[in-house]
Simulated assay, not measured.
Amino acid sequence: MGREAGSRREAIRLEAARWVVQLDAPACLAADRAAFEAWRDQGPEYEVAFEREAAAWERLDRLRALSPRAETPDADLLAPAHKRSPFRKMDGLDAKGWARAAAVVGALGMVAAGVISATASTAYATAIGERRVIVLSDNSRIELNTNSKVLVRYRKGAREIRLVRGEALFAASPDARPFIVTAAGTQLETSDAAQIAVRVKGDVAAVTVRSGAVDVDLKDSDRESRQPAGVAAVYTPAGGRVQRVSTAEIDRSLAWRQGGIALNGQTLAQAVAEFNRYNRQRISVDEASVSGLRLAGYFQSTEPGSFVAAVTSAFPVRATRDAEGAIHLTARD
C-alpha cells in the first residue's frame, strides 16, 4: 500500500514538473492552460506538487555555485534569469523531449530542495468543499477553509505565511520570531499566542482577531495599528474599517470549522454566495424581489439542497433546476 502511494506521489510530481515547463513555454496555448487547470483541480496534492516544482525551478540559478560529482546540468538551465528565458529553447519538443525536460526539473528540484529548504515556500491548498488543518514545525496551526491556499516560509528571522486565496484561521504559537500573515496587501504580525481569522476576496482582506492581538500594516502606507481580540476589520487599498464584535458573532463567522454556515440576518443573495463557495452545484437568485429576504439558521455547507428546501418552505420562493443541475431561485406566483 505504501509503495503504491509513493508511486502515485512520484507520478504527480513528474506531471507537475512537466506542467512547469509547458506553461512557461512560448508555444503554450490557451487549451494547454485549460488542460492544466483541469489537472490541478483534481485535488490539493496536485496544486501543492505544482507549487513545489515551480518554486524549485525558479531558484535553480542558485545551483550555479555547486560542483556536482556526476553529470553537470545544462548551462542554459542554470543561467541567470535576467539573461535568458528558461523555456525559450523548448519550442516544438516532442513527447520524449517534454519528458526529459520534466525529469530535469524534477531532478534539479530535488537537489535544490537540499540547498534552499531554509528559504523556499511550501504551499498548502484545499479544493472546493474541503477543509484542512496544517500543524507547522513550531506547533502553530493553520485551518484552511474551502478553496483556499497558503504559502508558508519559515526562516531564522520570521515565520511568514501568505494567504493567496480563500479563508483561514491562523493559531500562532509564541516564538521569538514574529508570526506574519500577508493577505491582499495587508500584513498582520504577532509574536504572542494569537488566533486570527482572515478571508481574502480580490484586493480586500477581512480580519477577525479571536484571541491575542496583532499589529496591522497596510501595503503602500505608513499607517499601522494594533488590534486586540474581539475586533473585526475589513482592509482595502483605501484603508480599513474596524468594529468590535461579540464572541457569538465570531463563532458564527467560524462555523465553517465544523462544516457549517451560520446565518444571522444575511440576505438570500448573500447566503447563496456563501453556499456557492463550498459546492460545485451552483445556486442563483434570478429575481431581485427575493434577493433581499433576510435569513437566519444553521446549515451544512455542503448540503445546498437542504438549504434550498428550507428557503422554499419558509418564503414565497420557487426553486427550479436546469439541465446542468444548477438551482435557480425565483418568486413563487
Rank of each mutant, 00 (worst) to 15 (best):
D192A: 10
L93H: 08
E143G: 04
P178K: 04
S137Q: 11
L163M: 02
E130L: 14
E143R: 11
D91M: 03
E130S: 12
V152P: 03
T182P: 00
V105Q: 02
V135I: 14
V181S: 02
L169A: 07
K149R: 14
K89D: 12
T186L: 11
L108C: 10
I180K: 08
V164W: 00
S191E: 05
Y154R: 05
G109K: 02
R132C: 04
T190H: 06
L144E: 04
L169C: 09
S137E: 14
P178F: 04
V111M: 13
A172M: 03
V105Y: 00
I161P: 00
A183Y: 04
R153N: 08
M110D: 13
V133G: 10
I180M: 10
L108A: 07
L108D: 01
G185N: 00
S173Q: 04
G129Q: 14
L188R: 06
S121T: 10
L108Q: 02
D192W: 01
R155E: 10
L169T: 05
G92K: 02
S191L: 04
A125D: 06
D192S: 13
T119P: 01
A103D: 15
V104L: 14
A123I: 11
S148R: 12
N139I: 05
A125P: 06
A103W: 12
A158T: 04
G97W: 10
E167T: 03
